[in-house]
């Protein structure tokens, strides 16, 4: 697939919006439709769009962290959210809430959702990048200026 100027310009606008929207969906999930899973999917599709516009190499660089690290930390955070109640004598996985000054409620279910979010982003991106490394021509292989096609 070749680099498309239209897609690149659009991606520059859309990707930040999609990431914001994914975080919004994740936080909204507590009381209304949404949640970590769906938010994570939107977040992952933001990076997938970026990869379609600029190639997976740039998308990996834009994410900073390795998707596998995201997966691990996601599961880790979810596990921690399940373990926190044990320290206060409540049963495993019990949802605990605390109210911050100002009326903001924070609790272990939100922590769990963040974990799910990270896990879903990580897992989806691992699959997508893996397909690209495998030679499925979903993503552009040229570099940013579109002059020298890379080998592979």
């Amino acid at each position: 697939m070749r680099l498309s100027l239209i897609l690149r310009t659009a991606a520059r606008l859309l990707v930040p919006l999609m990431i914001l929207f994914s975080v919004f969906l994740m936080l909204r999930g507590h009381n209304e439709a949404g949640g970590g899973f769906i938010g994570g999917l939107v977040g992952a599709s933001a990076f997938a769009l970026y990869a379609m516009a600029y190639g997976t190499k740039d998308a990996r660089r834009a994410l900073y962290a390795d998707p596998r690290t995201l997966m691990a930390s996601g599961v880790g955070i979810a596990l921690v959210s399940a373990l926190i109640p044990l320290f206060s004598g409540a049963p495993f996985f019990k949802g605990l809430w605390t109210t911050l000054p100002g009326g903001l409620k924070l609790g272990t279910p939100i922590l769990f959702d963040i974990g799910v979010y990270l896990l879903v982003v990580g897992m989806t991106l691992v699959v997508i990048y893996e397909l690209d490394d495998d030679g499925l021509s979903l993503f552009p292989r040229e570099n940013r200026r579109g002059t020298t096609p890379s080998s592979s």
């Binding site: 596998r68 690290t69 997966m71 691990a72 930390s73 599961v75 880790g76 596990l79």
Partner: peptide, 11 residues
């Protein structure tokens, strides 16, 4: 589960 997380971090 914890071991899986740690092993993935120390991959």
């Amino acid at each position: 589960l914890a071991a899986a997380v740690l092993a993935l971090l120390f991959r």
